[in-house]
Design a protein around this nucleic acid. Structure first.
Length: 498
RNA sequence: GCCGGUAUCGUCUAGGGGUCAGGACACGUGGUUCUCAGCCACGGAACCGGGGUUCGAAUCCCCGUACCGGUACCA
């Protein structure tokens, strides 16, 4: 089994295309097939090298690899369509010679007018066939005169073209509704429908897994295979990925490209796991599955026929799962850019990095994405008693006398106590405040939270408090934003309280 | 317009001539926790409509509707 993923480098890798790549990859891995990466860069206006590089990088980031491609090599290259121009020309010549194709001199304006007319007459707007029966002499003359020409395929009339689609069964379309497609543009570059056939044919592709937007093109391609005497591959047309409003997923729905998800702090294993779930079901109920397991279970038979809505909430759920089981060193490395951007970190000293790595899970356990880490961690770095007291929720909490007593007792206790650098120190301090104030449980811990963090919510105190005091001890050269210790916080709070 | 594709909870889906139509996300309620998150328990929530075939249709067939795609010298 030979499969291919064929992106056109005209922008960033869209998640819908990433899903197509993924399904190809899963099938290849499941069946021991070969996956080819081919760059469809025949649109010279829009294709860029940068896009190609980005797409390859995104695919690798997702954990997908390929056996043959522009970078990987292979026996049936080149793997970039722009480097296969001779092949297309030669094959177009074959079709020209056999009468399957002909040259067309119609101008874009003429064609447009034809389309308008056909539409007005209620006919399918296909090529009118003006140049279909131009004599060889006439063609020669116009060519010699330097008139621009395209090569068109001669589509046989009144034929039902049927092709096999593994996910939908067989599909039949009449040639009466398809006009003669352009094979070679006037600049000598192949048009899509021609290039795919030549490439898939010459590259020995046996199964074409692609988006369902290609279904209407397929008959033309099948006809081309026939003209060359080749056996068409088996097709598998995947349904599309839609936005919440059921329109195809686009920028106005938010992030649509793989890099954007990457930049927002989604883990690649999460994106890939989620994407596999749109339009395919692993069966058996469990959905949180690593790439290898997805590949083990994958089959085209389980692919659904209908389009799927991209659900950011479910993606978030999947991402939270992978965030929870991720290695903390990795989380540290991945979070650093966001912390830098938020001004909370710079180049870290070794000790600071160790500290960050240790405390990070308390933040990553409570976020959907890594870009939310700075916000979750802000209360470790930033403390302002006046501001805290201005907060509605904090005010309400301090209405009770007990809460104020806890605040004062805590400040007094910490004034002479050692820093709360571990859970035991913190627990001991809390215990002492409990004894002097008589407050316990919620009435004890919640005021402590407020005094020490200025907020009435956040990570659990057992983790948070030691994080603050160990962070405060790090020193000015740590590369971290300065951290005020608990003692100073409590003192400032009581002063602000008046 | 024409051609093609698709149709199960809000969303992703399982199932498929007789089921209490199952699961997951999200949502609601309760429990746990100093709080948020989490976790646990419980709950509401669906077979697009109409005709047929059949003892019986969500499932098969037809029609309709809706949505998506195509109708290019884009891919």
């Amino acid at each position: 089994m030979r499969l291919r993923f064929a992106p056109s480098p005209t922008g960033q890798l869209h998640v819908g295309n990433a899903r197509t790549a993924l399904f190809n990859w899963l099938l290849a891995r499941n069946r021991g097939g070969t996956l080819i990466l081919r760059i469809e860069d025949t649109d010279r206006e829009r294709s860029t090298h940068e896009s190609e590089r980005g797409i390859l990088e995104d695919l690798r980031w997702l954990g997908l690899d390929w056996d043959e491609g522009p970078d990987a090599g292979g026996d049936v290259g080149p793997y970039r369509q722009s480097e296969r121009l001779d092949l297309y020309r030669a094959h177009a010549d074959r079709l020209l010679a056999s009468g399957h194709a002909y040259r067309c001199f119609c101008s874009t304006e003429q064609l447009e007018a034809d389309r308008q007319a056909a539409r007005a007459a209620g006919q399918p707007p296909r090529y009118a066939g003006r140049c279909r029966s131009l004599g060889p002499e006439a063609v020669r003359l116009r060519l010699d005169a330097g008139e621009p020409a395209v090569v068109r395929f001669r589509v046989p009339a009144h034929r039902d073209v049927t092709f096999a689609d593994v996910v939908r069964g067989s599909i039949t379309i009449s040639t009466d509704v398809i006009g003669d497609p352009v094979l070679l543009r006037s600049d000598g570059h192949p048009a899509y429908n021609f290039a795919v056939v030549i490439d898939d044919g010459l590259m020995g592709v046996t199964t074409v897994v692609r988006g369902e937007d290609h279904i209407p093109n397929t008959p033309r391609q099948v006809l081309l295979y026939e003209a060359f005497g080749w056996t068409p591959p088996v097709f598998a047309h995947l349904s599309l990925v839609l936005g919440p409003d059921h329109a195809p997923l686009s920028k106005r729905h938010g992030a649509t490209s793989v890099v954007e998800f990457r930049n927002r702090g989604y883990l690649p294993e999460a994106l890939v796991n989620y994407l596999a779930l749109v339009g395919w079901s692993p069966g058996g109920g469990d959905e949180l599955l690593p790439l290898e397991e997805l590949a083990r279970r994958f089959s085209l038979e389980g692919v659904s026929h209908s389009a799927g809505v991209f659900d950011v909430e479910k993606l978030a759920w999947v991402n939270r799962h992978y965030l929870k089981i991720a290695d903390r060193e990795r989380l540290c490395a991945l979070s650093l850019p966001y912390l830098r951007e938020a001004g909370l970190a710079n180049t870290l000293s070794e000790a600071a990095r160790a500290w960050l790595t240790a405390i990070l899970p308390m933040a990553t356990a409570a976020v959907d994405r890594l870009d939310q880490v700075p916000a979750r961690l802000a209360l470790v770095f930033t403390y302002d008693a006046i501001e805290a007291l201005a907060r509605e929720g904090v005010r309400a909490e301090l209405l009770a006398d007990g809460a104020r007593n806890v605040a004062r007792a805590l400040a007094e206790d910490l004034a002479s106590a050692p820093p709360l650098t571990d859970r035991e120190q913190f627990r001991a301090a809390a215990q002492r405040v409990r004894e002097t104030t008589g407050q316990k449980g919620k009435a004890l811990f919640h005021p402590i939270r407020i005094v020490l963090t200025g907020h009435n919510e956040g990570p659990e105190l057992d983790l948070l408090v030691p994080a603050i005091d160990t962070g405060a001890a790090l020193g000015a050269d740590s590369g971290l934003a300065p951290i005020t210790g608990c003692r100073a916080r409590a003192q400032a709070f009581v002063e602000a309280l008046g």
